[in-house]
């Protein structure tokens, strides 16, 4: 199982390191932490760039989360702004409080079975239901809820 998607561990490790270094406070909309500025890139080796959830990223994440053929989070979770949600799993609210560590939220979406083998949450990363980039977008959206 572990050999299947080698990109997972580096990503998580990166996020963990990032979380420790930068913290996961909700200042991600602060333009000063923009990841894509040249400055952020040049210092990336020492200090990973801060993640910034632009409105575009969050909108892309919302589309994926609501799309029945993609994330389809609404099948099981209530999400503010989503129509006809299911009630199989808890509503997605207060996510920054529930997941102060954003990497944990990503890991839960990537493969919830790691934390709970009897979960009924589909392993979006492990089974490649979503791409790594799509998962990042969904995380950005869900974390804003």
């Amino acid at each position: 199982m572990h050999g299947e998607v080698p990109s997972f561990y580096p990503t998580v490790a990166w996020l963990v390191i990032f979380t420790i270094l930068v913290g996961c406070s909700d200042d991600t909309s602060n333009p000063q932490t923009m990841a894509n500025t040249p400055k952020a890139h040049s210092t990336a080796l020492k200090t990973p760039p801060a993640i910034v959830d632009t409105e575009d990223t969050k909108a892309a994440g919302r589309d994926l989360a609501f799309d029945q053929q993609k994330g389809n989070c609404l099948a099981c979770h209530q999400i503010d702004g989503g129509d006809a949600p299911g009630n199989i799993a808890p509503p997605l609210v207060g996510m920054k409080l529930r997941y102060p560590n954003r990497a944990k939220l990503r890991a839960q979406i990537w493969d919830a079975a790691v934390a709970n083998p009897e979960t009924i949450m589909p392993p979006f990363g492990r089974n490649r239901i979503l791409t790594e980039k799509e998962i990042d977008q969904v995380v950005a959206f869900i974390w804003s809820k």
Partner: peptide, 9 residues
């Protein structure tokens, strides 16, 4: 396990 619950609508 989830009989009776709602999967979307």
């Amino acid at each position: 396990r989830n009989a009776g619950r709602q999967l979307r609508s």
